[in-house]
Write a protein that binds this DNA or RNA. Structure first.
Length: 381
DNA sequence: AACCGACTCAACCGCGGACGA
DNA sequence: ATCGTCCGCGGTTGAGTCGGT
């Protein structure tokens, strides 16, 4: 009997303790909100009536102390839900509709600088919410990952602030820079030395190896038929390289190589989307080539180290030598030369190894790889 | 017309920082 | 120093929509 009474009392105490703990937990915001003050709180989409109540309250009382909104208005919504609804939908300064191309470019640029800092990014895009930006980015991320496309110039992003690079393609400008005085922004700005984004063309990225066209047999046959007519339309860099290559190796071509000529055509892409860029400064003059600091190709030629990674590794030294001696390296786009220069001088190159920059390097260097090496790449990939 | 998968986006969740008692 | 509350952030979910079959 006594034992039973003790057991009952102990059980009651434990029960009361449990109830107390449950009650205290229900008052914490993190577990919020379903039953605050004994009233079941509503979840899910807001109705226009709820919107009107909340908007009227905020208009009269201003924002802040969201948890008393329910008490004052009778809304069956928690404070967090009210704040979210106001900031993301009811604020009068919100911009509705899809992101403009300018805004998309800005988001891409900001994400390259600060990562998933949606709220910070939203500060740079007036009228846009962090939620909108986050959704936009995640959608874009999903699409481009599926397509095997890079998100931005990711591989060279670490270079942008590389203090050792004396001739960077771009740098990060902070709000307290002298020439930024007067701006209220606290977010650093990405500044390109020689180029600026055309705002309605957000497709600025380096094409990865995966975008190099992989022709099937039928397409190869078709390609062979049109190769001759296309040859005269090749970009100058390809034509001049082929001329140069022919100058170097005048011996009769190997018949097996001849059959592969159509595979050796330059890829149908431009290493950089030139349409996305406007040149602000004229290309460097020829005298630049003589200046080791501003060599049109990286002086230490580290970019060439990435190439054997893609090839079979047996003949890369001769290919490097050929590339180095190639007269037409002047045809390399000045911007790409800057990128290569930065990459070759980057500490990140040492830290991450060549794989981190492989795609970027290869897309730039590809047009300058002799055809026979391209064939080797095609066979081994 | 029905179904299905992809996509969009509003809303929720959990966490952590700030701040006052 | 500790606790409770508020607030904001980033990640995730799920309902609705759209387009293709």
């Amino acid at each position: 009997m006594i034992v039973a009474a003790v057991a009952t009392a102990t059980g009651s105490i434990l029960f009361l303790l449990l109830v107390k703990i449950m009650c205290s937990l229900s008052l914490e915001e993190s577990s919020d909100d379903d039953h605050r003050g004994g009233v079941a709180l509503k979840k899910g989409p807001w109705t226009s009536e709820e919107d009107a109540i909340l908007a009227e309250y905020v208009t009269k009382n201003g924002i802040g102390n969201w948890n008393i909104v329910r008490q004052r208005t009778g809304l069956a919504r928690c404070g967090k839900s009210c704040r979210l609804r106001w900031t993301n939908h009811l604020r009068p300064d919100l911009k509705k509709g899809a992101f403009t191309p300018q805004e998309q470019s800005k988001i891409i640029e900001l994400h390259a600088l600060m990562g998933n800092k949606w709220a910070k990014m939203a500060q740079e895009l007036p009228g846009r919410t962090d939620n909108e930006i986050k959704n936009f980015w995640n959608t874009r991320l999903k699409k481009r990952r599926r397509a095997g496309l890079p998100l931005y110039l990711d591989d060279i992003k670490p270079l942008l602030s590389n203090p050792q690079s004396s001739a960077p393609s771009a740098y990060i400008q902070y709000a307290n820079d002298s020439n930024q005085a007067g701006t209220s922004s606290s977010v650093p700005k990405l500044v390109f030395n020689n180029f600026t984004l055309i705002s309605d063309n957000p497709s600025l990225y380096v094409h990865p190896i995966s975008e190099i066209p992989q022709k099937n047999t039928f397409e190869q046959q078709q390609q062979q038929q049109v190769d001759a007519s296309l040859a005269s339309e090749l970009p100058p860099s390809f034509q001049s390289f082929d001329d140069n290559y022919n100058d170097i190796s005048r011996q009769p071509p190997d018949p097996t190589e001849t059959s592969l000529v159509s595979e050796l055509q330059p890829p149908s892409f431009i290493p950089f989307d030139d349409n996305a860029l406007i040149k602000q400064q004229p290309p460097p003059t020829e005298t630049c080539y003589d200046d080791p600091l501003f060599s049109r190709l990286p002086p230490n030629n580290r970019h060439l180290d990435a190439i054997p990674k893609i090839l079979d590794g047996s003949d890369h030294s001769s290919m490097q030598e050929e590339l180095l001696n190639s007269k037409n390296k002047e045809n390399l786009d000045p911007t790409n030369q800057d990128v290569l220069y930065d990459i070759s001088r980057s500490e990140d190159y040492d830290n991450k190894g060549e794989n981190a920059f492989k795609d970027t390097l290869f897309s730039i260097v590809y047009p300058f790889i002799p055809p026979r090496f391209k064939r080797r790449y095609n066979n081994t990939s």
